[in-house]
Amino acid sequence: MNLFTQSVISGLMTGAVYTFLGIGLVLVYRTARILNLAHGETFAITGVAAALLAGAGLPLGAALGLAILISLAFATGLHRFVLRPRAEWPAGTLILITLGAAFVVRGVLILLAGTDPLSFPVMFEGPPVRFAGGAMPLQGIALVVLGFGVSAGVGIFLAATRAGKQLLAAAENPYAAELLGVNVERARITAYAIGGLLGALAGVLLIPLIAVDFQSGLAMTLRGFIAAAISGMSPVGVLFSGLGLGLFEAMVGAYLGALYQDPVMFCVLILVALWQSRNIRFGGSRRA
């Protein structure tokens, strides 16, 4: 096996996931001006729910569908019932509330599934595709194709459709958008729903390859945020930053060792935070 090729393959797969998660964070940030630290929980909820439902005997397709719906309900419910009623609160407080929500989800996942990693069968079965000394499972190919395809689709939705432009307008200036007849609240809930759906899709595609546990959510939020921040919270830029981050993390794991991945990623987070601290602003106009 060629270590470099295999690292690239691994990086492409995790990069696709970070892109999925980064876009969700960007959409919520741009429409509601808050960083949703519970965003990665959509990944963990989907994985745990799908594993439990499939383990209880539900057909895999039904288990995955139900798990995605639960994740969507969490993402939109967090906005509708927790954040929106507190729209006038300071941005920092709302961010802490999302962190609290992430820990609540952790607790619920431990109660429901315990602390051991869980998984469920892959959707795309078959022998891995081998090239240049590396091997890529069919599920991994689906993850990369869907990850970048769906993410590019979201970018096109924002840039080229009426609904997408309404969402961008609601993000930039909710007051002006409302005066032009745009339903800003619907734009925000759409952003949370798209984010929840992308987080859930990431879970459905990646978890059969790596497993999931109660701690996965915050780790995914962290990676998604780094990708989002590198892109300057751009829904198009995150496509490339997510890919770059996935490849970088895979190379660190391959050449320095898996134990170095988390410390290196935290260092990247600090550097990105310093670099982007002037560009990324929370708060401002009415949020959540």
């Binding site: 432009k165 309404q166 961008l168 307008a169 930039e172 200036n173 002006a176 007849g181």
Partner: peptide
């Protein structure tokens, strides 16, 4: 809306 074009500003209506 500073980041949208004139035409997109109008189309929001």
């Amino acid at each position: 809306l500073a980041t949208l074009s004139v035409r997109d500003n109008l189309a929001l209506t």
